[in-house]
Write a protein that binds this DNA or RNA. Structure first.
Lengths: 140, 140
DNA sequence: GAAGATATCGCAACTCCCTGCAATAGCGCC
DNA sequence: GGCGCTATTGCAGGGAGTTGCGATATCTTC
């Protein structure tokens, strides 16, 4: 297991909780929430404290095994780092989420690098705004 | 007072709490937080419930009097709508915030409109990433 | 295989924000 | 000016996420 080695290399330890969380992440199709993970583990009979889950997701993010993104609500979404990265458009009126390929966002990232030396992660937070349908409804 | 009229026109009422919050916003230099407002009013001897502040900020946002943005922490920042709008770059390593003019973000907004019919508000959420200094430090 | 160092866990408490509900207070109208 | 309608308030409670701390478990070393 690669992650296990990476962990130990940094003086970390492989605990049962960590293993279970890793397992839940591996099983997750797309993105998960901390609550999803807790619920899933609870269903299997393991009761793991929420703070343990949050702390472990942070550690796993440090190891580059997962990343997180924020849509326009207050729930953090977690993804395995091996999934293909993409941006999100979230409609503030109807809540619709649209995925957009990173390619569409890259020109801005390039510009921000050139002008500000800033390595932007445009997949980290959703872009909020108003989707086509809602715009039509509003203006009518 | 324009806002007061806009409020009443929609069947709203001008309460003492509303007036105080409006006053605090007028006094705020740049951006404020709900907590700032509560603290400021408390200092003047007015104790207003936090939920009242949140609800009022929401109402005022509906009237177009204020807007809010999310930097990369969990605290919502509120601005008067008459302030000039700008984007934010937030470094996930050192926390540094850089303001960027909307002009720098507009090409992406235009692209998202053309391709997805999505009216993006690129000032709503900060762009997170790694600033120049931190990038230099990391790679050394 | 046991011991020691310390990373990690669970718990409790806290922060920011949101929501339901009963009580209150603005507003429009007579 | 008083009355009734109902928007708004404060309070209590809840959800997501974070933090400090003492107890525990994992890893390293002998």
């Amino acid at each position: 297991m690669k992650i296990e080695d990476a962990l130990r290399q940094r003086g970390g330890r492989m605990t049962m909780q960590r293993r279970l969380i890793l397992d839940a992440l591996a099983r997750a199709r797309h993105h998960t929430t901390a609550d999803d993970i807790q619920r899933q583990l609870r269903a299997k009979g393991f009761e793991i404290d929420a703070s343990t889950i949050y702390r472990n997701l942070e550690v796993l993010e440090g190891l580059g095994h997962v990343t997180h993104t924020h849509l326009d609500d207050r729930v953090t979404r977690w993804h395995r780092a091996d999934e293909e990265r993409h941006g999100h458009l979230v409609c503030t009126v109807c809540g619709a989420e649209t995925e957009v390929p990173m390619a569409a966002l890259r020109p801005l990232a390039r510009r921000l690098m050139e002008r500000y030396g800033f390595a932007a992660d445009l997949a980290h937070a959703a872009v909020s705004g108003i989707c086509e349908q809602c715009r039509v409804v509003q203006s009518s």
